[in-house]
């Protein structure tokens, strides 16, 4: 699959072409950038750093009906994800795409989650490189990621200034290339080499880092370490760090009934909430924010890599930038290394 050239003037037409699918792009709402389904290509806001809420909500919606039922009728009407149709997420960042490839491992592990996997199958990810790191707190390069990373993406658009280098990466990417053939030109020969030197340059602009070596093995030995109390002292117990994390995937189930008609829905849950793992008896094995913070870090940096061989963090920096009390995962990890 050879790289192509997509001139920036043609992006509007490309989005028009793609609007025959369910097209999701970054959108600006006041000063907040979010991923939303768009009807008009003009709504797309592509000159952004990174979105506040990651695009994981497209494949793993915050609230998702699994089936519907009628009281008194044993028949369940299951959600058919197929009806949502082919979806294109256009313009997401490499870290968020890589996060999806990490979460895929969980949802296709001992139980294959039909809703998530079907939606993933229907979704094509067209990513855009970060020429400038979107945030001072980016640290993707510490975790096998890159501002030009390809993991999880079907197409990578390398921002070359006046045009994009269109790189199809998967079969879905190749189909995307066919769909958009009339808007693509042959890439100039120097572009591919220039892209790789640009990648090195972009990596160099990322200032924060962590060496994750050995953390997964060390974390269990720090179970009772006083550091957990100290790092969670200021924690408010809100859901910002988890809801805005592109790899967090905990969910809760709720039944909702309205005049005899009901649905079972799953919705995001956060390990930082006080009811998380609260038992019906009133007992909670994670009774305070200390245990909950320990769980958040351990899940990402110990349990997940032990099970799936990959750290459940992509270094997007959202949890650091948006934490109301500046709890900083890099600082916690440094303390883990030093402890």
């Amino acid at each position: 699959m050879a790289a192509k050239k997509l001139s920036k003037e043609k992006v509007g037409e490309v989005l028009q072409e793609l609007s025959k699918f369910r097209l999701i792009t970054p959108v600006k709402s006041d000063d907040v950038v979010l991923f939303r389904e768009i009807a008009d290509p003009k709504e797309a806001f592509l000159e952004y750093g990174n979105s506040t809420v990651p695009p994981k909500k497209v494949v793993f919606p915050q609230t998702e009906t699994l089936f519907r039922f009628t009281i008194g009728n044993p028949e369940l009407r299951e959600k058919n994800v197929e009806e949502e149709g082919t979806t294109v997420i256009f313009g997401l960042r490499p870290c968020d795409a890589r996060a999806m490839s990490i979460v895929d491992k969980l949802f296709s592990w001992d139980y294959e989650d039909p809703y998530y996997l079907k939606r993933r199958e229907l979704t094509t990810l067209v990513g855009m490189t970060c020429v400038q790191p979107p945030s001072i707190n980016c640290f993707c390069t510490s975790l096998q990621g890159s501002p030009f990373g390809k993991d999880g993406l079907d197409v990578l658009l390398v921002d070359m200034g006046d045009h994009f280098l269109f790189q199809p990466l998967t079969e879905k990417g190749a189909r995307m290339e066919e769909t958009l053939a009339s808007y693509l030109e042959d890439a100039s020969p120097g572009d591919v080499e220039r892209a790789s030197s640009m990648e090195e340059e972009a990596k160099g602009k990322i200032v924060r880092s962590i060496d994750p070596q050995g953390i997964a093995e060390k974390l269990p030995s720090l179970w009772e370490d006083p550091l957990w109390k100290r790092v969670s002292d200021a924690c408010l117990g809100c859901g910002i760090c988890t809801f805005l994390c592109p790899t967090c995937h905990c969910f809760d189930m709720q039944d909702e009934v309205e005049r005899g008609e009901g649905r079972r829905a799953r919705m995001w849950d956060s390990c930082m909430f006080c009811e998380y793992t609260l038992h019906a008896s009133g007992h909670n094995p994670r009774p305070t924010r200390k245990e909950r913070t320990r769980n958040r870090i351990s899940h990402k940096y110990s349990y997940y890599p032990k099970r799936f061989d990959v750290i459940a963090c992509v270094g997007c920096g959202r949890c650091i930038s948006l934490c109301p009390v500046n709890i900083d995962i890099l600082e916690i990890l440094e303390q883990v290394v030093e402890a």
Binding site: S29, D30, V32, L34, V53, Q62, L236, G237, C238, G239, I240, F243, L244, S270, F273, C274, E275, P324
Partner: peptide
């Protein structure tokens, strides 16, 4: 438009010095 953006992280509740019910209506 504003409410549709809400992700219900409840940070507004948790940060609030006046939101200190042991048994919050939201839970």
């Amino acid at each position: 438009e504003k409410f549709s953006r809400c992700i219900r992280c409840y940070s507004c509740r948790n940060v609030c010095p006046m939101c200190y019910c042991n048994d919050c209506i939201l839970d």
